[in-house]
């Protein structure tokens, strides 16, 4: 494809990214570095601040759960799920904006989202994190890494691998326009299990890969091998998702009050 077409594709995906994802990397980094000039996030660093900060956490509550009877850890976990379900909706809208995606076989669209969405969410989490903690709840809260590590097992094991990945991923210094293309590449993976018609998916991905390669050359001229380094991250991501799904399976078996959001259940069932 012509360079002009590849640049147009990059612009289109960046615009869709800005449209569907409320907390951009630029905004998150401004909050984390204290450069917003507005509200600083509420810091959750222990159980007391968790309870104080719950008023900021999340927007929608899960009905049918008696909040009085739940311990804070589990209640927080349910809030995270509710936000994750909303994030899946945002990623779905972004996927639909990728040129050619909605023309794919509908079963394949479902498969691409089922296998790609958690990988996308983990990549999108990276800009919200630094080595000390993570922004949550649209940047209104900063939750410390130490606090997450102090939760009881297996909750304490959930976020640590994401921190380790994110701290390394952030050294690549992608910006939001790079991220938009990388997310599209992840979604358009032609090797997901059960795809019916791989060829058109691979063709779409190839075009987005060309656009990403050009974007990185123009946007990061001094960063050698950035394109190759970024593609290698896709292998790490699959392992993180596999481990995450296994942890959720463990939670389902061990936690009596465990409630898994129906959308997340759909995605994780028979995933890996």
């Amino acid at each position: 494809p012509e360079a002009a077409d590849l640049r147009a594709l990059a612009r289109h995906l960046y615009e869709a990214y800005l449209k569907y994802f409320p907390l951009t990397k630029a905004k998150a980094r401004a909050i984390l570095s204290g450069k917003t000039g507005e509200k600083v996030p509420f810091v959750i660093h222990d159980m007391k601040s968790l309870m104080e900060g719950e008023q900021f956490i999340n927007c929608r509550q899960i009905p049918s759960l008696d909040h009085q009877q739940q311990v804070s850890t589990l209640r927080f976990f349910h809030s995270c799920q509710s936000r994750s379900a909303e994030a899946v909706r945002e990623v779905t809208e972004f996927a639909k904006s990728i040129p050619g995606f909605i023309d794919l076989d509908l079963n394949d669209q479902v498969t691409l989202l089922k296998y790609g969405v958690i990988e996308v969410l983990i990549i999108m989490m990276s800009p919200l994190m630094n080595k000390d903690g993570t922004l949550i709840s649209y940047g209104q809260i900063f939750m410390t890494r130490e606090f997450l590590k102090s939760l009881r097992k297996p909750f304490c094991q959930m976020m640590e691998p994401k921190f380790e990945f994110s701290v390394k991923f952030n050294t690549l210094e992608l910006d939001d326009s790079d991220m938009a293309l990388f997310l599209a590449v992840i979604i358009l993976s032609g090797d997901r299990p059960g795809l019916l018609n791989v060829k058109p998916i691979e063709q779409l991905q190839e075009t987005v890969l060309h656009s990403l390669e050009l974007q990185l050359k123009l946007n990061h001229p001094d960063s050698l091998q950035l394109f190759a380094k970024l593609l290698q991250k896709m292998t790490d991501l699959r392992q993180i998702v596999t481990d995450h799904v296994h942890l959720i399976e463990l939670l389902k078996k061990t936690e009596v009050d465990m409630f898994l959001h129906p959308l997340l259940q759909e995605i994780m069932k028979d995933l890996y």
């Binding site: 929608r60 509710s82 379900a85 909303e86 899946v88 909706r89 779905t92 639909k96 909605i102 509908l106 079963n107 669209q109 479902v110 498969t111 989202l113 089922k114 059960g194 959001h261 129906p262 959308l263 759909e266 995605i267 069932k269």
Partner: peptide, 21 residues
Amino acid sequence: LKEKHKILHQLLQNSTSPVDL
């Protein structure tokens, strides 16, 4: 596959109104 993933399917099909999550 569509049957096993009703909410995902619905999200893909509804271009304007998001399903009640």
